[in-house]
Amino acid sequence: MIGGFAATIHGAARLTVDLDVAYSREPENINRLAKSLVDLDPYLRGAPLGLPFQFDVATISRGMNFTLTTSAGDLDLLGIVTGGGPYEALISESDLVEIFGYRVRCLSLGKLIEVKRAAGRPKDFDAIAELESLAEEAENSHGGAEGH
């Protein structure tokens, strides 16, 4: 997990409405990813209805980053993260957290700040400021995702 949900895990208070996930481009994982989303009716977010879009192995293999709408909510799937690279490069920059009984990899606070800064989007400035404030508070109190 990266993006706003990861920020929440590290303590961000702001509301985010989509889930950002970095995924491995290994063929076996692409296959798993396609199968796991079938029941959620993924479709290209913001695109006109009725396009011949199917989120299957061929589509994922041809593409890289996807902004999707699903029956469970908006989902961004990233094969490459700006400032972070592919999934494999992010593994060592992630923390393991437990949510709803599942162990989930979440981008570390330091790397999250780095990739948001790398993206350079003005809309992220406020979020980056909050993340950096969280890092400073966590450093002072030894809290953060690892602390609980």
Binding site: F5, T8, I9, G11, A12, A13, V97, E98, I99, F100, E130, S133, L134, E137, A138, S141, G143, G144, A145, G147, H148
Partner: peptide, 15 residues
């Protein structure tokens, strides 16, 4: 104050 409140929660509570 929001930052400190949030840091006082567990990960599950934040989610």
């Amino acid at each position: 104050t929001l930052v400190r409140k949030s840091l006082s929660l567990t990960v599950q509570e934040r989610v």
